[in-house]
Write a protein that binds this DNA or RNA. Structure first.
Lengths: 257, 257
DNA sequence: GTCAAAAGAAATATCGATATTTTAAGCGGC
DNA sequence: GCCGCTTAAAATATCGATATTTCTTTTGAC
């Protein structure tokens, strides 16, 4: 009966229409849970399990899963269900390279086309990001949950003035993909890193309308996360992952070799 | 009772596993029908209509539609169903630019990494493409249906040696997107065009392992289709599209301004 | 006659149950 | 004791029907 009434954990975002569809709800929740590692890469996603978890029917759950398919967060094969998209260093290396290609291009275009409104939005999102970075530096744990969102907002603000719909579309997918890896890299604290300084460098160059410099800093920023993750996983060496589906060392977090 | 037994219209392709899922079947058929213009851009896609067209149930149809969503071939909004993704010259311009960015990069990497096997596959697909181009030049209508497939194969063969999964993924989506526009541009024959020569130029440069030259020709090739479509739509001028959902002049084929 | 509220029709979103496959378990034979 | 075959169990894919929403049309006041 209360078919649509369990959305009381109303996402703080949701700018407009509260009348979200059940599919959308499950899709968003599951996406977040994949991104934040609740479901590790490679994990089997049984519809039965999920359908009870989100209190929706089988077909509806499937539709939500299929959406994630389009964002490459889950995979599916023939007659054997869905699972969380696998993750590996190799994939992250690839992802990083392509992200640099796409985001630097978008950034260049944004700098070329950006008007005053773009600048002010950028200033605002940089400020918000800085604030949470401060808190993060003081090791306030609750800051971490805010960080990812504001980081995304800042990166979006940077390229917001890029007129290319397709670049935005692609950049969005790639950015989201890297979220899983970013989380790992940051959690590990492998290399000392002044994220605020990195962001500020990009920000300053963008405001100064220097596309080459902004691109350079953006590329370095993106690539540094890859380095960080590489180092974080290095000491442990090439640890073989046990065959069993469950019960894998928490450290690996689903990363394949 | 014969729930799954009406797949006798087995697609002539289907290289492997005949045990295709109903969702996959509907998805593939609908995709083709969107790409070949059976369903024009912007058209409403009523599940009821489609579900009878493909003889499957509502939820199954929805799942197929949701897959197309992930390839940006259909759109959906809140509680008001699906429709074919809109198309416009502006979109094609954008698409073209991004395609150039992505495909030239992929091509460079392919040329850098390609081995002998890559070369031979490329030779083979170029040969097959040439054959159908010959037939096309003689105005053999049935050749047109083969053309698109072989053209795709050739373009894939060109970048096949590119090691980046993500570039392949993105290039695939963009190439597919442009298929709708390509069809229009070719049908119109706006500018005289020697497609074979264009392809040969890219091919020769790739085999000669000249990344700059190959990229240059590839970019020109991609951009030429945009020019062709621009000119094809020019004479008719900025024709306003009638508000009514159906009954639009066949010439526009769903293109928005 | 115009506009808007209200009733009706059409379409969408969702459910709960069933048919099909895939995976796991059990069971002789060699 | 290991392998392949037969059953049983689990999971997936699909259906047909229903509740909700949106879109149309009707109707009734002003």
């Amino acid at each position: 009966m209360d078919t649509a009434g369990k959305r009381d954990d109303a996402e703080k975002e949701g700018p407009r229409r509260a009348g979200k569809t059940l599919v959308e709800g499950a899709y968003e929740t599951l996406r977040r849970e994949i991104l934040d590692g609740t479901f590790e890469p490679g994990t089997k996603l049984r519809t039965e399990e999920l359908r009870t978890r989100y209190n929706i029917s089988g077909s509806t759950m499937r539709e939500a899963l299929t959406r994630l398919l389009g964002e490459a967060l889950v995979t599916t094969e023939g007659q054997r269900g869905f699972r969380v998209a696998p993750a590996s260093i190799a994939d992250f290396e690839d992802l990083t390279r392509v992200r640099v290609l796409v985001e630097t291009e978008a950034l260049r275009q944004a700098i070329a086309h950006g008007d005053e409104d773009w600048e002010s939005q950028l200033v605002a999102s940089f400020y918000r990001l800085s604030k949470v970075e401060e808190r993060l530096a003081q090791d306030q744990k609750e800051a971490a949950s805010d960080y990812e969102g504001r980081n995304r907002d800042f990166h979006n603000a940077l390229i917001a003035a890029c007129p290319s719909r397709w670049l935005h579309y692609i950049a969005g997918i790639l950015f989201q993909q890297s979220e899983r890896y970013r989380r790992l890299a940051l959690a590990k604290r492998s290399i000392p890193r002044d994220l605020h300084a990195e962001h500020k460098a990009i920000f300053d160059a963008a405001i100064a309308r220097d596309p080459d410099l902004a691109s350079k800093y953006a590329a370095e920023h993106i690539e540094r996360t890859l380095t960080a993750l590489r180092i974080a996983l290095e000491p442990t060496g090439v640890k073989e992952r046990p065959r069993k589906e469950r019960a894998k060392p928490k450290v690996s977090l689903g990363l394949e070799d």
